[in-house]
Amino acid sequence: MTRCTTQPAKKILSLTLAIAITLGATVTATGCARSVDPHTGMKTSSINDPLEPVNRAVFTFNNALDIVLIEPVAYVYSTFVPPFAQTGIRNFMRNLRSPFLVANSLLQGNINGAGVATARFLINTTAGIGGLVDVAGMNGLAYQQEDLGQTLAVWGMGDGFYLVLPVIGPSSARDIIGTTAEAYGDPLRIWTHKTGRDWVYYTRNAVEGLDNRAQLLDAIADLRRNSLDYYAAVRSAYAQKRRALIHNENPDAPTTPVIPDYDE
């Protein structure tokens, strides 16, 4: 984080914490991808991780923090908040992200995606009661996650290297640039900061992070229990998920491995 920012330490700290909670242990939220052989389109097994020893240490710390704090909170949220309320919160949070979805779609030259994101915002903000109900989604306008890291990837920037950030979790050199720039350009952050309502911004990030983590309760528990090398499993899953997002989860994108025939 400090690599990319020159802002006062306090600001960085609070921002880091905010994004941290947002992405805490979120394997799927942001990060690094595209370790793909350009000729075969095959995902290769090598993920550029020159800082592996440091990353592993940070990962261990994050994992401990997740176990003692983040996971229990996410569990309570997931268990005791009624499902319809959780869905409403998720819809509301996604709707708040609309400016980013539209902007990044446009920056990626994805006019159709920008149109869908705009339509979703207009429909859900009005008919969907301020974004609580995903009316657009029910009518075939599906949510598509976009962020600046994906845009940079579409523009041809590689992942750089894999990086595990304290509290925030998996990322990559490229995606840190995206995450940081987006945070600073976030209209909600700028507005709440100007009007002395910073807590709104941090609450938004915290709730978003909580929702993300709650959705991954089973997946992460399973990975923890069943993986031989949890760090390597998360790194791999993260790279793959990022790659799928960059391709807008297009099922025809060359994201499937080319698996040879061995007995011939």
Binding site: L228, A233, S236, A237, Q240, A244, I259
Partner: peptide, 20 residues
């Protein structure tokens, strides 16, 4: 191969074994 939410079990397994 089985891909769950775009994550391939085969690739994940391969990366994990390689790391070990």
């Amino acid at each position: 191969d089985v891909q769950v939410e775009n994550v391939s079990m085969l690739i994940t397994q391969r990366n994990e074994f390689a790391a070990v």
